[in-house]
Design a binder for these strands. Sequence first.
DNA 1: TATGAATGAGATTTCATTCAT
DNA 2: TATGAATGAAATCTCATTCAT
Lengths: 226, 226, 226, 226
Amino acid sequence: MVYKTSKETQERKDMKKQHILDTAAKVFAARGYHHTTVKDIVDEADISIGSFYFYFKSKEELFAALYAEISQKHADIIGSVLNYEGCGLVKSFSRAITASLWAYQQKRDLTGIMMFEAMSLNSEFKKKWFEVVKLNCIRIKDLFRTLSDQGKIDVPDLDVSAMAFEGTYFYLIFNWLEGDDSVRLTDSAFSLTVYNLQAIKAKMDKEEVKKYIEEVLDELEKGMHD
Amino acid sequence: MVYKTSKETQERKDMKKQHILDTAAKVFAARGYHHTTVKDIVDEADISIGSFYFYFKSKEELFAALYAEISQKHADIIGSVLNYEGCGLVKSFSRAITASLWAYQQKRDLTGIMMFEAMSLNSEFKKKWFEVVKLNCIRIKDLFRTLSDQGKIDVPDLDVSAMAFEGTYFYLIFNWLEGDDSVRLTDSAFSLTVYNLQAIKAKMDKEEVKKYIEEVLDELEKGMHD
Amino acid sequence: MVYKTSKETQERKDMKKQHILDTAAKVFAARGYHHTTVKDIVDEADISIGSFYFYFKSKEELFAALYAEISQKHADIIGSVLNYEGCGLVKSFSRAITASLWAYQQKRDLTGIMMFEAMSLNSEFKKKWFEVVKLNCIRIKDLFRTLSDQGKIDVPDLDVSAMAFEGTYFYLIFNWLEGDDSVRLTDSAFSLTVYNLQAIKAKMDKEEVKKYIEEVLDELEKGMHD
Amino acid sequence: MVYKTSKETQERKDMKKQHILDTAAKVFAARGYHHTTVKDIVDEADISIGSFYFYFKSKEELFAALYAEISQKHADIIGSVLNYEGCGLVKSFSRAITASLWAYQQKRDLTGIMMFEAMSLNSEFKKKWFEVVKLNCIRIKDLFRTLSDQGKIDVPDLDVSAMAFEGTYFYLIFNWLEGDDSVRLTDSAFSLTVYNLQAIKAKMDKEEVKKYIEEVLDELEKGMHD
DNA sequence: TATGAATGAGATTTCATTCAT
DNA sequence: TATGAATGAAATCTCATTCAT
């Protein structure tokens, strides 16, 4: 048939869906998930309720989509700074931790929603949240195993260590969110990296760590303007 | 009518209030704060809605009371194992971490409320949660400072390290809550302790750590039967 | 406990529930099930929406309750005129058919809702409706079997005959509902009785039938004023 | 733009309209009028909502068209078996009743729409349904009058008898629709015919009735393959 | 002709809290 | 003190229909 959905229409649809996502992110950030109504979102996005439900099955589905989007972006950022072959472990950790903090910093408001409200939702969604956490832990665990086998680090139980490592971000971010927004989360990158590198008994030169962190921050800031 | 507030009556009132708190803890843990209705609680407690509102001004106030109670109990347990003068740092940390995990383990349901529900609520209450977290962090920070000044440990920024330390519990506990309830959280005490002791570059003998952990676990189990 | 629900309160509750049922009947009759909103009902009954949902789980449950009530009343009326021992078959049929028509006539508006809208509802409710129909058919069938065994009537297949009998009311009532409300449904009692008595080849005297019908109508009208 | 309405185009339009009708019949039958959305229909028909509203002004109009179509088909079948001059009354009734049941049986899904959905809708459409019913009743009534005048049958009030007769199908069909679809509705033709012939005191030979029924069923089955 | 995104009135239902008994 | 019926604002979601492309 001739009159089927044109590419153009599809593009407009994608844009509108993205517009809803962006608006929702803003509103959720301002009011929190439970205190945000669908009406709040559609008013802010200047669309009709019907449109909202055309693009998303429910408020919860929207949240899930938003969460998936953020997680993906976050993962992409981390991934982008780790695409170096033969990178030493100190460099890798410095880069990864810094990039992670940087990523949160980019979306200050959403970070709160995603990290702290996500888990208080329906079991359905809680699972999704937990899967992301577990996936992260598994990646770290695998890394720990490899490095441990190579004798480069010395950690107790891999599972526990991976979870402990992942957790070191948590209150740091929470504290940052609660505080003045003039403070940069990445200012804690050095200390956090050192804390964890010491925890796994990796040999390191603190000056080197500092250098790596500055390097990756430069890259990330530059990457943002492309 | 004159309402007697004889000692006897007062006692009955206290018991009833406690009964509501206990029941609420159970229900909140099972369903989460937002998915728990006041009716759920009064049905489970076998009291009337009117009674509920006699004892608590609102659903939120009940939660606050509950949270205060849990925090206090938790603090008491930790405090009870740290009342040793001249304790070495390895011993102190081993005892504190283990006691903390043990405390969570004792009240599996309440742990979820304390750690995950509390922080996802709106402003007013979130603050209270954060205060507890901050207080913990300050204590750790002070300890880190003292030990650092004595040259016994080597940590980067004290604030960041304290928060990182505090965070190492987080996902461990979350993972434990999600899993099978046959698993003991205290089984992770050793690894968690080692991870953090290494992180702060404390000198330690792993066997010693193990011993301290067993010791404190024995004490705690015994203390329970008094 | 002393302050538990008093008998008095219970009575008020029952009255209010009945008040909602009565009002709903009126509104359903006027607008039809699908065109009646819960708000219509509560406005008419002068209660709050909350009250409505305190007494009924949903609009559908209310309808079901209403339907059960009407069915029961209907069955009671039929039952009341059949409590005669050793009643001949002509008398029984005359009385039952007349009483049935009379019952419909008493609740003209509701009859339409109950007979014609009930079956277009959710499967859940449709089942209930069908059960009532089937129960009626079974009763008739049993009666047919007994009479047939006694050689007093001569019908083909019992199931089919019972359903055919039950159906003879249907369009008659529909036609009555559509027409002028000055017409009495019971005016068709004689013809309907004769039609069915002839169908089952029961021996009868038409004058006798007329007499029985007048008798039962008198009884019913008198019974109403007690 | 000029829209050609060449014969070819017109044919394509008719086909599409019919396709929508056929699909709608299927969906209405499965879900009922009120529980079927326009989207359900267009999805099943694999057309767009826009197309739907090009061919039908509204959901209700579509239903009306569908109902008209079904009624017509049904009338045609009945008409086809009654085109015999000088047919005896027993034969006429046997043929008519059987043909009617057979017609319902052919389109099980549509039967539900025709008999049960149609009448439970709101005023405007209910009337149309009732007109068909009334028309049927009038035909039967006329027949009854003629036969009665000829002394071949003996019925009470003609109107009531016609409606009673028409009603004898009702629950039989409902029961058939609710049950297993392996059962043939025409299996009840004999009993239903006898019930009604007895009701009007027509003289008959049951074997004869059986023969007529078999005859007409053969004809109908054969007619289907032409 | 064909498409399907967009609309928004309106329907159902929930639940924290109050207050008369 | 205790009870639980009553309240009603507010939230989520549906769907027939329109209209720009």
